[in-house]
């Protein structure tokens, strides 16, 4: 089995990203897949808490501070069969702003971790660190709640990611005209003719049709998978489809609504007990929905 990296992002804080990461990791591990969960929420690591781990000897800090040679040496056991963890640490000031070289090194070591799957629990927001780790993953889950504020952040996050992708792509063509066009497109109010990605690519086509074709192929491969968390009603469930349609219409991105996870008191109770809900209440609605999500992640 080829190693698969799943990145879990939640552009808005507090949407349940780490809860989903932890419980999804447990669910996949229970299916016999050897999983390593990595807490890359560098400024506010708490994945270990949700997994019920109070103390840990090793963390990502050890790797970043070069106390250990390989990332593999930062791994700890979770007590759950097939599931290992790299804790975020968080003792290094300013760690959230990872320098480029360290990011590259970390990326290389993530790919070398033992096991079948790596689950990355990323930070909130749309900083370059978050976006770049999303790009190294085979699959990106974008967690949101159904509230308009959270959905707005999902859209903005995907838009930022697309601009990052296009910037890299066109920079590699060494064309100032592309760079200038991208800069203009960032100010949609001043340049309404560039308000959609399709508009932008249409303009770019006039500069170099070949580069634009490869950019389109690149965007086609970028498929965010939306996960709606804390859904309480059918309207909440449908909210994923709304943002999905907007992304298709304005950002030319094909996304999926991969799961709708219900709001469930059992989750709050489990967090209060400092235990994963998947272990203390595997039969609750949330755990069942996460199990379905796990199956989908394995199939894709």
């Amino acid at each position: 089995m080829q190693k698969k990296i799943i990145a879990i992002v939640g552009p808005k804080g507090g949407v349940g990203k780490s809860t989903i990461s932890a419980n999804l990791a447990i669910s996949i591990a229970s299916m016999g897949v050897r999983v390593t969960a990595v807490d890359l929420d560098l400024g506010g690591a708490n994945l270990h808490v949700i997994l019920g781990i109070r103390d840990f000897a090793n963390s990502l800090d050890d790797f970043l501070l070069k106390k250990v040679r390989t990332l593999e040496e930062s791994v700890i056991e979770t007590g759950v069969k097939n599931l290992r963890l790299i804790c975020g640490g968080g003792k290094i000031p300013d760690i959230a702003n990872l320098p480029f070289q360290q990011k590259v090194k970390l990326t290389n070591h993530l790919a070398k971790l033992q096991g079948d799957m790596v689950i990355l629990d990323l930070a909130a927001g749309s900083s370059f660190n978050v976006v770049d780790f999303l790009f190294i993953a085979n699959m990106g889950l974008v967690v949101t709640t159904p509230e308009v504020t959270s959905l707005m952040k999902v859209y903005s996050f995907i838009k930022s990611s697309i601009f990052r992708l296009l910037t890299f792509h066109f920079k590699s063509k060494h064309s100032e005209a592309f760079t200038e066009l991208l800069e203009r497109a960032k100010d949609a109010d001043a340049n309404p003719t560039l308000k959609t990605i399709e508009n932008l690519l249409g303009e770019a086509q006039k500069i170099d049709a070949g580069s634009v074709e490869s950019a389109r192929q690149m965007l086609k491969r970028f498929i965010p998978h939306i996960v709606i968390n804390m859904a309480r009603s059918q309207a909440d469930v449908n909210s994923g489809r709304v943002v999905q349609n907007l992304m298709k219409q304005y950002l030319s991105i094909d996304s999926t609504v991969l799961a709708n996870l219900p709001e469930d008191e059992a989750v709050k109770k489990a967090i209060f007990q400092l235990k994963p809900v998947m272990l203390v209440n595997p039969g609750c609605a949330f755990s069942k929905a996460v199990t379905e999500l796990a199956v989908k992640c394995l199939r894709m």
């Binding site: 959905l151 859209y155 903005s156 109010d189 059918q234 309207a235 449908n238 909210s239 943002v243 907007l246």
Partner: peptide
């Protein structure tokens, strides 16, 4: 539900200025 979906889309478009 249908109404909520329409409203959500309108809100998102307005707030995102799209």
């Amino acid at each position: 539900t249908l109404f909520a979906e329409d409203r959500l889309q309108a809100d998102l478009k307005r707030f995102l200025n799209i």
